[in-house]
Amino acid sequence: MVITMAHGSGGAATSELIDEIFAKAFDNTVLNEMEDSAVVEGSARIAMTTDSFVVTPLEYPGGDIGRLAVCGTVNDLLMRGATPKYLTCGYIIQEGTDVELLRRVATSMAETAREAGVTIVAGDTKVIEGNGGIMINTAGVGFVPEGLEISATRIQPGDVVLVSGNLGDHHATILGSRMNITNQIESDNAPLTDMVATLLAHKIPVHCMRDVTRGGLATVLKELSDSSKVTITLEEESLPVSPAVRDFCGLLGLDPLYMGNEGKMIVALPAEAAEEALQLLRGANYGADAVQIGVVTEGIDGHGDLLVRTAIGGMRQLDVLQGEGLPRIC
């Protein structure tokens, strides 16, 4: 069966779609009330965020748009030290979408939400004309402990920068799928819940965390160096990239520094706390490949810089991604 405009009418077909797919997948006491809005328990400090997800293909090695839509929002909450609690989701579905695909996406979304420890408490469905696509918006609420200040502006000279694992996996997966390239690369899309919870539970003095998404590590760290007005110097040889992704990038002329992930984060923290933090990250879910990649020094003339020392000892200054990261021609 495929989605038709009738599924967006607000009538019987809409109810059936919601009951059959979403209510079944997301099943929880708040959502099951089916009221106009969800009423939930709160906290003195909350973090809120929203993100919209558009990805082609909808299902790819290692994940799908449903998993992505949970991870993206949950990870943004986590990066401020919040414990993610509630999600809302809005589905915009194009007519012609296979209902079984929709069920798989919703089921994957529900499983990922359980893994990340969040409850999907409200939702919405719209059907539009089109050719079988799905777009999802999620908004999230998390509770922030009193006194915890983790922010893009708090990176300081004397800090070091850690990354939780290999770069570029998600980007390479999506590009590979679109180009019909068969390889072993899988998306890393994952909630960072366990890693963040472990660091905070052990009172690691984290100054800043940021998930490495679109634009890649270089874009993220350049923005952070600007926000904190510091110089971040990376060691090229310590940047973790899997051999498969490295070769993929080599073939297509892409730079792993500018390729997106959906389950990796950087952590900036005082150098003396780095070793314990690395051990904790490596013991947590999705953190096995965590390494230190750089050091933080004073900013020059009050602005931020991102530098990388190359394998042959050269120094390269990095900027944010310009335009799109496209494969080269020759």
Partner: peptide, 15 residues
Amino acid sequence: GSHTAAIAKSGITKV
């Protein structure tokens, strides 16, 4: 073009 990119990324001119 790939050399242009590779040379720039290697930082070789500073070495």
